[in-house]
């Protein structure tokens, strides 16, 4: 997996196995449950409850729109014809930022489903949680590749 900058566009190149895993992971979006984010845990309780409801509604609407955008984007991906079977996903800078948000949502949501452990690698894996661990790790890896390449001026 690598990110290549082509003038104002970014191309994420993936091997076939990486691409299939990415599709599976993106199926999980959105994954952070409503109520995870708190606006002001120390404020006036009545006002805080009203503000919290508004916050959750706004986040829910934003994620529904983001899910639609993700589905439309996935539909437009063309299978590789050349490039030795390499999948090439094309992003503008704004789309890349949005994609990082999507990956982070799946990553944080998967971590919460694992029980929000201080060290996810210490969690004992079983039939019920291995998918969460794989999603956490793969999203983290993909985020690191994207962020590392964003910083690289070449």
């Amino acid at each position: 997996m690598k990110l290549v900058r082509n003038q104002a566009r970014f191309i994420l190149e993936l091997a076939g196995r990486e691409y299939r895993l990415l599709r599976e992971v993106l199926r999980l979006y959105p994954r952070i449950p409503p109520g995870y984010h708190q606006l002001n845990p120390t404020g006036d309780p009545a006002q805080t409850a009203a503000d919290q409801r508004l916050l959750e509604e706004a986040l829910r609407a934003q994620k529904e729109e983001s899910r639609r955008q993700l589905d439309a984007w996935l539909k437009e991906i063309q299978p590789p014809r050349h490039h030795a079977g390499v999948w090439r996903l094309d992003f503008s800078e704004a789309e890349l930022d949005w994609f990082l948000q999507v990956l982070n949502d799946v990553r944080v949501g998967s971590w919460l489903r694992l029980g929000a452990p201080a060290d996810p690698h210490a969690v004992e894996l079983n039939q019920g949680n291995w998918e969460d661990f794989v999603a956490l790790e793969f999203c983290g890896y993909t985020q690191s590749v994207l962020l590392g390449s964003l910083d690289d001026p070449s």
Binding site: H37, Q38, P41, L55, L59, Q62, Q101
Partner: peptide, 19 residues
């Protein structure tokens, strides 16, 4: 402040505001 906190939440960070 609400605008910024909402944006940080969209990115998945833990953020709050206080007077």
């Amino acid at each position: 402040a609400e605008h910024y906190v909402h944006q940080l939440h969209q990115y998945g960070l833990k953020a709050t505001m206080e007077r």
